[in-house]
C-alpha cells in the first residue's frame, strides 16, 4: 500500500511520519499547494505548525488546496490519519468532531505517556486488543480535547473514542482522557500523541507501529474483498 504524507510549509513531523509509514508500506510527501493526492491509499496529516499557527492551530491549513482533496477523499471513505497538528487541522476542517484547546498548564508539554486502546473497531486500531497499553510521546501546547456534551455522548455511544490516556497520564486536561477520536464513518482518525515517534527501539518504544500496521492490514483486507 502507499501512504501520502501532507507537507505544509510549517510541518515538522512530516519526514518522521514518512519514515514510520515506510516501515509498513510505501510512502511519499504530498505538497500543500497541490490539488492532487496522487492516488495514495491513505493520507497522513502530520504534526508541526502548518502555517505557523500564530492564529488558532490549524485554522489556516483547512483552506490549503490539498485539504479540499483530503476532504473529498475522506467523504469517499479514504483512510485519513491526523497526528497532533494534523488532528487540529482535521477538527478545523470539520472532518472530526470537537476541538483542541490549550493545555490546562498553558504550556508546551513533551512526555512519554501510556495510552489505552478503547476501541478496535477501526482501520487504525484493528490490529490491537481492547485495553492494550501503548507507550507513545505527546508534544503540544494545544491538545486538550473538548466536545460539547451532546457530541461527547455520541462519541461514547458510537464507540468512536479509539485511544485514551491511561489513568494518571492525561497530559493536557482532555475530556474523559480522550487521546484520539474517529469520525462517524470510522475512516478519519485524529490523535494528539505521536505514533510516528514510537516505531524504533533505538529511539524509544515501538508501540506506535500498531497504528500503522493496523492501517496496512485494513487496506490489505479491503483489497482482497
Amino acid at each position: 500500500m502507499r501512504f501520502g504524507v501532507i507537507r505544509f510549509p510549517g510541518s515538522c513531523d512530516d519526514v518522521d511520519a514518512l519514515l514510520a509509514c515506510r516501515r509498513v508500506g510505501e510512502a511519499e510527501l504530498l505538497w500543500h499547494a497541490d490539488r492532487d493526492l496522487r492516488g495514495v491509499d491513505a493520507v497522513v496529516v502530520p504534526g508541526g505548525f502548518s502555517y505557523g499557527d500564530y492564529l488558532r492551530a490549524g485554522a489556516i491549513a483547512r483552506f490549503a488546496p490539498v485539504m479540499a482533496q483530503v476532504a473529498e477523499f475522506a467523504r469517499a471513505g479514504g483512510i485519513v490519519l491526523g497526528i497532533c497538528n494534523g488532528f487540529q487541522v482535521l477538527c478545523e476542517a470539520g472532518l472530526l468532531p470537537g476541538a483542541l484547546l490549550p493545555n490546562t498548564s498553558l504550556r508546551f508539554v513533551f512526555r512519554q505517556v501510556a495510552l489505552e486502546v478503547a476501541s478496535t473497531d477501526s482501520p487504525f486500531t484493528c490490529g490491537c486488543e481492547i485495553g492494550r497499553r501503548l507507550s507513545i510521546p505527546v508534544k503540544h501546547t494545544t491538545g486538550r480535547f473538548y466536545a460539547p456534551a451532546d457530541q461527547l455522548r455520541a462519541l461514547h455511544a458510537e464507540d468512536r473514542i479509539l485511544l485514551r490516556y491511561a489513568p494518571g497520564h492525561n497530559p493536557n486536561g482532555s475530556l474523559d482522557d480522550i487521546a484520539g477520536v474517529c469520525n462517524e464513518g470510522r475512516n478519519v482518525f485524529g490523535l494528539m500523541p505521536h505514533p510516528e515517534h514510537a516505531v524504533d527501539p533505538l529511539t524509544g518504544s515501538v508501540d506506535g507501529l500498531a497504528i500503522f500496521e493496523s492501517i496496512r492490514a485494513h487496506v490489505a483486507g479491503r483489497a482482497l474483498v
Binding site: 518522521d16 508534544k139 505521536h194
Partner: peptide, 9 residues
C-alpha cells in the same frame, strides 16, 4: 518537558 527532544527521529 517544555521542549520537543524527539522530532527528526
Amino acid at each position: 518537558e517544555q521542549y520537543d527532544p524527539v522530532v527528526q527521529s
